[in-house]
């Protein structure tokens, strides 16, 4: 059975999918979310709404999803295992489905050490793979984790993430296989900067036949500046930024760096699109949502179906 997810519709039609991301604000103003959403409307099939990303307190993903839905986007609610136990998670899944949120992305979540409340207690009652199982169980079996009946099943398209650049590399395709087996229907990968390594990972994915079980969207992040590229390379855990990409940004005049960053992103889209088994891209333009239109157009992915 299909869900009402626009992303599911696009992926099942065989069209190369485009998703993007909206980071909710650090305040209660819905206009910020609406503005970000307005940049994306008509250019993406679905928009992820992050769940207190990097462990910094922001407007809840649930609420920002509803704001975006209000402006005509189909949101993907992200849910991390850091802040909620299984009771709160299942409750939020029911609430999200009740209010028309069609997609859920299941993640472990960054450790709170990286955020603005490093003294917080973390939860991690269940992990991301068990969260996938939970949503699937509620939707397909109509059962809570406890085994008790869900009255009114949440019809949700289930997503996950995977980082092809984290270690140990040899299990990164196997871990995706576990997520697909748990019930994930689409995966959005960590930002792809090292395309060669991503190709290797995709080869392992294809050898295991996982690309036939799950829709794979490659993560794309345009570099805004040389500083950002260096920060991503050196300070973000699990990120693989090849030195030559930084050199390329350094090689253009200062006023052309952002343009070059966009160009690299568009080229990366073209390269991953050519890889067998890649079903779409997930454009994470961090606090740069206004550039998504330009990237989508330049990559020849506009208009959206």
């Amino acid at each position: 059975m299909s869900t009402q997810s626009n992303l599911e519709r696009v992926l099942k039609s065989g069209t190369f999918a485009v998703t993007s991301e909206c980071g909710p604000p650090r305040g209660a103003d819905p206009e910020v979310v609406k503005k970000k959403g307005s940049y994306l409307l008509g250019y993406v099939d679905c928009v992820n709404v992050t769940d207190n990303q990097t462990s910094v307190v922001r407007m809840s993903s649930f609420s920002a999803c509803l704001v975006l839905k209000g402006v005509g986007l189909d949101p993907i609610m992200q849910m991390v295992c850091r802040d909620r136990n299984r009771i709160a998670m299942q409750s939020d899944i029911l609430g999200a489905a009740a209010l028309g949120i069609n997609n859920l992305l299941c993640l472990s979540g960054d450790h709170q050490k990286f955020g603005d409340h490093p003294t917080a207690k973390n939860v991690f009652d269940i992990d991301s793979i068990q969260l996938i199982q939970t949503v699937k169980g509620m939707r397909d079996e109509g059962r809570f984790i406890s085994g008790q009946e869900v009255k009114g099943k949440p019809n949700i398209f289930i997503g996950c993430v995977e980082n092809p650049f984290a270690d140990p590399f040899e299990i990164r395709a196997l871990r995706l296989a576990k997520k697909a087996a748990a019930g994930a229907q689409f995966v959005q990968t960590q930002c792809v900067f090292n395309v060669e390594k991503f190709e290797k990972w995709m080869e392992m994915v294809r050898d295991l036949g996982i690309h036939e079980k799950i829709h794979i969207l490659a993560g794309i992040t345009p570099m805004k500046s040389i500083g950002m590229a260096q920060y991503m390379k050196n300070s973000v855990p699990g990120m693989d930024v090849p030195e030559e990409q930084i050199e390329r940004l350094k090689g253009v005049p200062k006023e052309k760096v952002t343009e070059e960053g966009i160009k690299i992103a568009v080229e990366t889209i073209e390269r991953v699109r050519a890889i067998k088994g890649v079903a779409g891209v997930h454009i994470m333009a961090i606090e740069w949502e206004e550039k998504v239109q330009e990237i989508v157009k330049a990559a020849g992915l506009h208009p959206r179906p």
């Binding site: 960054d110 450790h111 855990p237």
Partner: peptide, 28 residues
């Protein structure tokens, strides 16, 4: 650091935990 039962998470790099590069990643 996340008590994950089906790890390693995406923060594992070079056999170390994302929380502290001196801590071995349990799942590695």
């Amino acid at each position: 650091a996340k008590s994950i039962f089906n790890g390693p998470c995406g923060g594992s790099q070079g056999g170390k935990c994302e929380v502290d590069r001196d801590i071995p990643c349990a799942w590695h």
